[in-house]
Amino acid sequence: MKVRGFFQPLTWFTGACYLFLYLPICVLVAFSFNTSRFSVVWRGFTWEWYIKLIQDPLVLDALKNSLIVAVVAMILSTIIGTLTAYGLYRYRFRGKTVFDGILFLPIVTPEIVVGISLVIFFVLIHVNLGLKTIIIAHVAFDIPFVMLIVRARLQGMDRTLEEAAMDLGADEWTTFFKVTIPQLLPGIIAAALLAFTLSFDDFVITFFVAGVGSTTLPLKIYSMVRLGVSPKINALSALIVSVSIILITIADRLQRKSV
């Protein structure tokens, strides 16, 4: 197959696709350091917008909310998702296929549908919208992702180690905590980091289930964008993208680590 060469059109085309994927993000980051407020012309390097950002109490408040939501949602969804992956791997029961299909639903359901159905639900059961409702919603959409990642790890796991532990007299409980979990750990941490990122970045669902005073960073960005493009948004966006990139890179490394 003659597609490997550097001078092949296919290689150039693919290169252009990568440029398409990354150029807008690079533009965003570059603009966040631009002295000029309104123009696209480069007028010099500045930290001004980042300094303005950390001096804005509303942004800091949103950051605090985002961190609370993402950390709590990460912990809960990692525990529940890992248990679910283990349960589906370990046991056979009637309705397993249906259960699998239902877990697939939150992934394919449009976020806006999830958002409005939850807001109807919370209003009907008289729960006030706030951080609590955001966390509940985030855990619900994080669980299937954690489940998938941990499950992939489980499928690549050496099952004989579990059997050996059981043969040597360990009960299922001990085997799970002393043999299964340590083997799964890189996968679980990767899943947790991705759950954190998903939750930290989520806009659409949060938009519907957030209440007064529970603005998260993406909500803050959205309300700023509605007022118009500004270098402050560029700086905030660049920061959030950097955090995501770091976490995703770590998660990717962990997932590649062999069992």
């Binding site: 965003l28 970045d201 993406p218 948004i233 966006s237 993208v241 995501s244």
Partner: peptide
């Protein structure tokens, strides 16, 4: 895995 909102804003 990165924010759709921010990637759209970049455009």
């Amino acid at each position: 895995w990165t924010s759709d909102l921010i990637r759209t804003y970049a455009w």
